[in-house]
Amino acid sequence: MKTSNASMSEGVEVIIVEGEIDMHVSPKFRDLLLNVFKKKAKGVVVDLSGVPFMDSSGIATLVEGLRWSKNEGTRFVLAGLQENVSHTLKLSKLDDFFEISSTQADAISSIG
């Protein structure tokens, strides 16, 4: 898994993840997410368009983001979900709890 983070002018933090998110890398993904939430941005976007697979630890880590966003009043939007990841999220019955945009640009503009 490779990750990068960029601060956008709209006050939005974007996290780009590439590769599979499983139990080995979820702790690293959580650390990154936690650090980004500490920046107290208006919104946090996680671009998952480069993630072909996510197991339940990845979903549970996204739930962490959701919890922090509620606590901090920060918008939290997932973007570019591949079919497989979208399916996993649906099966966990948690898809309705997340804000989901089809692209990173859509996600940013939905916050701005």
């Binding site: 139990m23 080995h24 979820s26 702790p27 959580r30 339940s56 630890s57 979903i59 549970a60 880590t61 739930v63 962490e64 919890r67 966990s92 019955k93 948690l94």
Partner: peptide, 22 residues
């Protein structure tokens, strides 16, 4: 098994257990 085999945070483990119980 998660405590034995992974380094997942407590809260993540809590969520995963709830997901499986569901």
């Amino acid at each position: 098994p998660l405590r034995e085999h992974t380094k997942l945070a407590d809260q993540v483990i809590r969520t995963m257990v709830k997901m499986k119980l569901e």
